[in-house]
Amino acid sequence: MTIQLFIAGYVLTYIFNDPHPVITITILGAMSIFSIMNIFKQMKFPIKRQIKWCIACSMMTGPIITLLFFNGIVIHFTPWYKPRYVIPIAGMIIGSAMTGLTLALKNLYEGITSNRDKIEAMLMLGAAPKRAVKKYVDQAFDSAVLPTINNMLGMGIVFLPGMMTGQILAGISPTVAIEYQIAVILGGLGGVSLTVIIFILLSYKVFFTKNAQLDL
């Protein structure tokens, strides 16, 4: 860990001193690809190729849209590719989205496979697939955002967040550190929510055939 962090420190110093849009975009791409591969690796059940596409699409869109909104509208720094801001914020947003998506996928898969009979019984009555899996989709979304929300509830009372602690130790005023922390946490929650919503909207259909039959 010490060696990894030292290397990261030197690499970041080099990138921060010589900012370039191509380098920033390359790093964002590498972070996204690593997070997608990490999600694939963590799944203990076989994932269909279409589900992998859904994961890749949602991880490539949700965090990036959040990042653009956050950097362009909330913090509003120039130039837009300034790595000092982009890379740490992207790291937090992509990291939260990765954790959320992993939980959502696991819960969606388990919810649908272990309730196969109930879902089929609803389809037999004439329910649309989207309605038949609504409960499991909602549960998957809740499981994805719950860790971030729980984290928010304990923040400032039970513990001080890492980023804020780092800033305070570096001599920044706690009130300024708090502003950044609130913005980052809300950005993370937005990133998780958007990524998981995109993923669920794309992926629930993969569990059904074109004739609205369950296909596991």
Partner: peptide, 17 residues
């Protein structure tokens, strides 16, 4: 359309939902 069809030809599974 499979969904519209099942609303006309509806099945009740053996295990009550």
């Amino acid at each position: 359309d499979p969904i519209a069809y099942r609303r006309k030809v509806t099945m009740l599974s053996q295990t009550a939902l």
